[in-house]
Simulated assay, not measured.
Amino acid sequence: MFDNPSDMEPMFPKRSGDLVDLAMEVHREAAALRNSLHKKTRKRIADLVRHINSYYSNLIEGHHTHPSDIERAVRKDYDLDSEKRSLQELSTAHIEV
């Protein structure tokens, strides 16, 4: 599949150009948003994003874990069904990582 280790290295845009300018603008706007939010609000948003990332990580791997099941797992309220519980445990592992 891959013949050379460089085939798996990340690709970076050129140091100048529209894409880099756009990336820097996103970075500036994100910093402004972060600074405009209260510390507790930022923490809560970060927690929610971790849960969302867990949902999509599972989905990419072919595992459909309903968001409400992820929220239950975070509260240690695991399902009795072993398959569902396994997916919940996978979700919490993604969040912890």
Score class of each variant (00 low, 15 high):
78 Y>D: 02
32 A>E: 15
70 I>V: 08
22 L>W: 12
47 D>I: 07
1 M>H: 11
82 S>K: 11
25 E>T: 14
53 N>W: 04
90 L>C: 05
41 T>N: 10
63 H>E: 13
95 I>D: 08
80 L>C: 00
88 Q>C: 09
59 L>I: 06
12 F>P: 07
87 L>G: 10
39 K>W: 04
16 S>A: 13
27 H>Y: 14
53 N>G: 10
84 K>M: 01
49 V>M: 11
17 G>R: 12
72 R>L: 05
91 S>H: 11
69 D>F: 02
15 R>F: 13
27 H>G: 10
72 R>P: 00
80 L>I: 01
16 S>K: 14
28 R>Q: 15
75 R>S: 07
55 Y>A: 06
45 I>F: 01
5 P>D: 01
58 N>I: 06
11 M>G: 10
30 A>P: 04
71 E>M: 07
82 S>M: 09
77 D>S: 02
87 L>Q: 11
30 A>Y: 03
68 S>M: 08
86 S>N: 12
54 S>E: 12
94 H>I: 03
10 P>K: 10
45 I>P: 00
58 N>L: 13
46 A>M: 12
27 H>V: 12
7 D>F: 05
39 K>P: 06
48 L>Y: 03
51 H>K: 15
73 A>N: 04
17 G>K: 11
40 K>Q: 10
19 L>N: 10
91 S>G: 14
78 Y>A: 01
36 S>D: 06
1 M>L: 13
51 H>D: 11
65 T>Y: 02
33 L>C: 09
82 S>E: 14
13 P>N: 13
